[in-house]
Computed example of a mutant assay.
Amino acid sequence: MLTRLLSGDTPRSSLLTALLLIILISLAFAPFLFPGTKSVETAARICIFIVLVASYDLLLGYTGIVSFAHTMFFGIGAYGTALALSTTGPGYGALIWGMAAGAGVAALFALAIGLFSLRVKAIFFAMVTLAVASAFAVLVSQLSWLTGGEDGLNYKIPRELTPAFKLIDEKIFDVRINGKLLAYYLVFFVSVMLFLVMLRIVNSPFGRTLKAVRDNAFRAEAIGYRVVWYRTTATVLSAVMAALAGSLLAIWLRYTGPATTLSLEIMIDILLMVVIGGMGTLYGAVLGATLFILAQTYLQDLMGAASEATSAVPLVSMLVAPERWLLWLGILFILSVYFFPTGIVGRLRAGRG
């Protein structure tokens, strides 16, 4: 049953299996295991970014396509949900059609980019996607009457998904059972479902053909596969998943703006997560997103504690000062690439640890 649920793509490493189970259980019970606003916010971001990074791995790792437009699709999904909720009110109908509209628009954009650009060499396609994503970000910033410009959009979501709604008055394990908890589990279960759908896609005949196209496009074309069609389809599927991840972020934050969805910094973070976890392994998205977001969130706090503990040693205290957390994050990334050139999942599977 578990093998069928995982589409036959098991972790193939006891250590990897243990890590994935720890992450799954931690996310499933995060509000109870790690109470506190910051912990739950971090867990929700991890869920959303697992979907986002996995959708990019579907494009980069399984199809061999380098795109810089992924945050554009992420933003389209977020803005689709935000506009639906801000214009028609905080109803479930608006929530559903906003998510559907965002995914649909992202699919159309991806189809247009794919059909017009995937016939060119990889580097030119990457440049085209970068130009399109940059133009889209500028457009969103300029259309303040529609998108809120640089300030973004604030909106209401259904009351049952807000902290004001109480499912029961009593606390369970010292946790309030309110709308915020329901919103977290909406994000969690939708993220799990989307991840399993992508796992099914990459382990289907379609997914195996994508790998053949990635490994040798000329050979795949020679034996009868329409390479452009497969690449375009993969681009569209990846865009739809990214848009749905954006919708989840919009629901969770109740705010959508260029900085939270469209920035180049987010695109770079996605690339780092894919490389750290391991390209061409959706499980790599789970590990990469979890490690990267935990480092982003808690590394500065850990360095602050280390700086205080080493205050008697001036040089060490200066090196681990909290304001240098980005430097150490970069060093950690370099070390991970050096010691895990195929990503964490690739290394664990090779070692069968």
Rank of each mutant, 00 (worst) to 15 (best):
residue 5 L to A: 15
residue 8 G to M: 10
residue 14 S to V: 14
residue 18 A to G: 14
residue 24 L to A: 14
residue 30 A to N: 04
residue 36 G to V: 10
residue 45 R to C: 00
residue 47 C to A: 07
residue 54 A to K: 01
residue 55 S to I: 06
residue 58 L to T: 06
residue 64 G to Y: 13
residue 65 I to T: 04
residue 77 G to Q: 08
residue 81 T to Y: 02
residue 85 L to Y: 01
residue 91 G to M: 08
residue 110 A to G: 02
residue 116 F to V: 15
residue 120 V to Y: 10
residue 126 A to V: 00
residue 127 M to I: 09
residue 134 S to Y: 14
residue 135 A to C: 02
residue 138 V to F: 03
residue 146 L to P: 01
residue 152 G to A: 02
residue 155 Y to C: 08
residue 162 T to Q: 12
residue 175 V to D: 13
residue 177 I to E: 04
residue 183 A to H: 14
residue 196 L to T: 08
residue 196 L to S: 12
residue 199 L to A: 03
residue 206 F to T: 01
residue 224 G to P: 02
residue 224 G to L: 08
residue 224 G to T: 03
residue 227 V to S: 07
residue 228 V to P: 01
residue 230 Y to P: 01
residue 231 R to F: 09
residue 233 T to V: 12
residue 238 S to D: 04
residue 258 P to L: 11
residue 259 A to P: 14
residue 261 T to W: 14
residue 262 L to M: 14
residue 268 I to A: 10
residue 270 I to C: 08
residue 274 V to W: 00
residue 276 I to N: 01
residue 277 G to Y: 00
residue 284 G to K: 01
residue 287 L to H: 13
residue 288 G to I: 04
residue 300 Q to E: 14
residue 313 V to W: 03
residue 313 V to T: 06
residue 316 V to K: 02
residue 320 V to K: 02
residue 320 V to M: 00
residue 330 G to R: 00
residue 333 F to L: 04
residue 335 L to S: 07
residue 347 R to Y: 06
residue 348 L to D: 03
